[in-house]
Design a protein around this nucleic acid. Structure first.
Lengths: 194, 194
DNA sequence: GGTTGATTTGAACGCTCGTTCAGTTCACCC
DNA sequence: GGGTGAACTGAACGAGCGTTCAAATCAACC
């Protein structure tokens, strides 16, 4: 029988994923026990197995959901390379800040995935990188951008933008919008013909 | 009595650290057991405790040694901001490539350190960041560089450069020197007045 | 309010963990 | 070649691990 409105799992299911995400991000997948997750949710460890077949699937589901949301949310290119790049930079910073825990997990716990799960997540990451790479290549075609190597520039820009998560805190000196402005300024100069 | 030339530990001591570094980088600190390390070294687990008081100290010693070598190896600034920045970029890429395992551990396993050990490693990382920040600030003073924010630019450049480790393989299309050239070109444009 | 089926408990399974230590082995010195 | 102390083994400790499952509990329906 399908779940009934008002049944336990309507609340417990998402809570399991939320608490697992939080704990995995804080302490690492290998260091978090099913009993810890259960305790955070407010159930016994056995109850978790109504929501995931095992611990590994719980990790993979979190990573896959995150990557799917990322690919879904990235703005579609308009064709104007410079505007598209700016939109990408601002989107990447904002999205990754809003999902800091999931971002952290999605490239910190890759090595804890079984090979086929690893390959699935890596393919999604590559799809995201390709998105930026196409923007850069289009800009090179029109002369708006000038780079030695579009693929390297793609990796450089993504690493630079993702790095914001390691230091930025909304309570600090700069707002998220300040940070978006500053990074866009640097990215623009790094890829623009001089 | 001090160690005698030719005694067991002359070879086993470094081997413990080497294998621990390799295994921690591959699978993560929490996922590697003392028995796995011992097996890689070729001894029983109990023998490891001749070389480290416990597993946590083994991790901390590896991280601290890496950070100390990094701070020791970073080139001294000459005062010419642009040349100093280029030297820093090339050094960072080469050093981090040569010690990929240690680099990976030193900022992936921070959360597995006890608070006071964490603070010691963080302080060393901050000292390294300050090194770059001083170069950028000096360049801003002379007008060689133009940035919105020297601290943000510092974090952006370091993240961008460290990201090389996630994709670069010497067997690939580009040599390490190619990569140094490309990244220096992007960094220079990102921080230079237009 | 009794039935039904989803949900959860609580105990248990076999296993591995970090660490300890008495006893053994080893390389060296006199 | 016997003595010495460092190095190592092998077994053991208590604890916690992921996972399972019969029994208990719960919410919804007739």
């Amino acid at each position: 029988m399908a779940r009934t409105a008002g049944s336990h799992s309507d609340i417990t299911g998402p809570k399991v994923r939320d608490e697992a995400l939080r704990l995995f991000a804080k302490s690492g997948y290998a260091a978090v026990s099913m009993r810890q997750i259960a305790s955070a949710v407010g159930v016994q460890a056995g109850a978790l197995y109504n929501y995931t077949p095992d611990k590994q699937s719980l990790l993979f589901d979190l990573m896959q959901a995150h990557m799917a949301e990322l690919l879904d949310a990235v703005p579609d290119p308009t064709g104007a390379a410079c505007a598209d790049l700016e939109a990408f930079v601002r989107f990447h910073i904002a999205f990754h800040h809003a999902r800091a825990d999931a971002v952290f997990i999605a490239y910190m716990e890759l090595r804890n995935l079984e090979p086929e799960n690893f390959a699935r997540i890596e393919a999604m990451r590559r799809a995201y990188e390709d998105h930026l790479q196409r923007i850069l290549q289009r800009g090179m075609g029109t002369g708006a951008f000038a780079m030695d190597d579009a693929k390297v520039a793609t990796m450089a820009v993504i690493a630079m933008l993702t790095g914001v998560n390691t230091w930025f805190r909304p309570s600090g000196r700069l707002s998220l919008e300040d940070v978006q402005d500053i990074y866009w300024s640097m990215v623009r100069r790094a890829v623009t013909a001089t």
